[in-house]
């Protein structure tokens, strides 16, 4: 147990000590102030994979690591659409997932926002034109924010969330 605490002590706060993150820090603080003002300190996102290759999911996970630590800004990922303010949709919307995505959107309470993340969610990406995909979330629902990239980096995702909050 002592070793565990020692490791935590030795690791320190990577969130603050990384120089390349100064820009992100400013961005995060900006997110936090907007969230405090409009969402009582809490903005809940439900991630929905509509048929992605899993690369976007890996980068969403990265948002929660100690470097980005998105929760410190009041943005958190929730387990149910019923708890969500926004859906973050990845993937080209496979035919087999399309109805499920619509159901998830239906289950999300108003007011709600839709973020399309990754080239696939934007326009089908590498899978555009396939019989098995709708070719982007816009084919079934209107996204409020689009986040291109294959996959978009955690910084880009964070900036997009900020963009959404400014527009709402």
């Amino acid at each position: 147990m002592l070793r565990l605490f020692n490791k935590i002590r030795k690791t320190g706060m990577v969130t603050e000590t990384i120089a390349v993150d100064s820009d992100l820090q400013a961005l995060g603080i900006e997110v936090k102030s907007v969230i405090n003002k409009r969402f009582a300190g809490s903005f809940a996102i439900r991630a929905v994979d509509s048929g992605s290759c899993n690369a976007c999911e890996l980068e969403i996970h990265a948002l929660n690591n100690a470097f980005y630590d998105i929760e410190r800004f009041g943005v958190h990922f929730v387990a149910s659409p019923r708890h969500a303010d926004a859906l973050l949709v990845t993937g080209p919307v496979s035919q087999h997932m399309a109805q499920a995505v619509l159901d998830v959107w239906e289950a999300t309470p108003e007011p709600k926002w839709l973020l399309a993340m990754g080239d696939c969610a934007v326009d089908g990406g590498e899978f555009a034109g396939s019989y098995a995909v709708m070719g982007g979330i816009a084919k079934i629902l209107k996204p409020d924010v689009i986040i291109p990239g294959c996959p978009p980096t955690p910084e880009v995702i964070l900036k997009a969330i900020l963009g959404l909050l400014h527009n709402t």
């Binding site: 690369a55 496979s94 087999h96 997932m97 899978f127 396939s130 019989y131 098995a132 995909v133 294959c150």
Partner: peptide
Amino acid sequence: YVHKGIEKIAEGRDAEGLAKLAGR
């Protein structure tokens, strides 16, 4: 659920196009 028709849309691609698809 995440069937994207990869085998079908691979057909007709050139080598570079297949490499890109395989990477996804």
